[in-house]
């Protein structure tokens, strides 16, 4: 292990480390802690200049206020309406593409694979004008469906890279022996490979959930009205509306950040496995 474990070091270093850990953490999360505390301050505290002290009382009413007096509930619902279908669609499509690219040796295999990989890296702006036009022509502008379609297509790039590498690492003999038995290609996919892909599906689902929930750019390009606006873009609009009401802005931010945060803590292992794919290979 690198660096050498502190357990083997002198007591001074050991205790020093135990103290340094929480101190470093507080410093690292300082902006976030500030916002969390602010979100619990009654409006009076901010007006009285109490920016740093503890709140005079814990004002959960900020959260109630945010839900009552703004459309944030609607925005959050919209975010779910965009995120969940995208996760299902992108994972489903990439199970298929990943399987095809990992199992079959056809001539254009690597070209198709690197098309997905390269497309995944392009700047969004080069897609913006045509994708907006396309969405308008399909009658899906300003709807969650328009966002979903684009997100599924774009995320398929990353998901394919992920799935293909995952399936490639499975033992190929499984597939070969099934073929010898005369099992059809579809059944091989359905009954042999798909059950083994569960960890990859879980990892991708959490990752894509977070990516799409946090998307802001496409939400502003493809959606205008609050009936379809996801919470990221909605929060930006609310920020303009709540000028200087930092306790409300903070409460709104925390509400908007919560679903992916919960997802992360519940599915941490899968999340990190997905994110660090390739970080150990080679």
């Amino acid at each position: 292990m690198f660096p050498a474990p502190v357990e083997r070091a002198s007591p001074i270093i050991r205790y020093g480390y135990q103290i340094a850990l929480p101190v470093a953490l507080v410093l690292w999360l300082l902006p976030l802690l500030g916002v969390a505390v602010t979100s619990l301050k009654p409006t009076g505290d901010l007006a009285a200049g109490n920016y740093f002290g503890l709140p005079s009382h814990i004002a959960f009413e900020n959260y109630a206020d945010v839900f009552r007096n703004s459309l944030i509930g609607q925005y959050i619902l919209n975010s779910f309406k965009v995120t969940i279908p995208t996760v299902i669609g992108a994972v489903a499509l990439s199970c298929l593409t990943g399987f095809a690219l990992a199992v079959y040796n056809f001539r254009s295999n690597l070209i198709v694979f690197f098309m997905f990989v390269a497309g995944n890296f392009v700047p969004f702006q080069i897609l913006m004008v045509p994708v907006r036009e396309l969405t308008l022509r399909l009658g899906m502008y300003d709807t969650t469906a328009g966002l979903v379609c684009f997100h599924i297509a774009f995320q398929t790039g990353f998901c394919t890279l992920f799935m293909r590498n995952f399936i490639k690492a499975l033992p190929h003999e499984l597939i070969e022996s099934a073929r010898v038995e005369g099992v059809s290609e579809f059944r091989i996919f359905r009954y042999i490979v798909l059950p083994l892909m569960r960890p990859a599906i879980a990892a991708l689902a959490v990752l894509i959930f977070t990516f799409i929930w946090n998307d802001y750019f496409w939400a502003t390009v493809l959606v205008q009205g609050s009936h379809a606006l996801p919470v990221t873009a909605g929060l930006y609009a609310l920020n303009g509306q709540w000028i200087a009401a930092w306790n409300l802005v903070s409460a709104g931010s925390i509400v908007a950040a919560l679903p992916p945060v919960l997802m992360f803590f519940l599915m941490q292992r899968h999340f990190i496995a997905g994110l660090t794919l390739g970080a150990t290979k080679g």
């Binding site: 902006p31 976030l32 500030g34 916002v35 602010t38 977070t210 929930w213 946090n214 802001y216 990221t232 873009a233 929060l235 930006y236 920020n239 930092w246 802005v249 903070s250 931010s253 925390i254 908007a256 950040a257 992916p260 945060v261 992360f264």
Partner: peptide, 14 residues
Amino acid sequence: VISQVVVGLIFSWF
């Protein structure tokens, strides 16, 4: 894990 929108708001406040 937090959205960049929230990070932006947090740092604006900071």
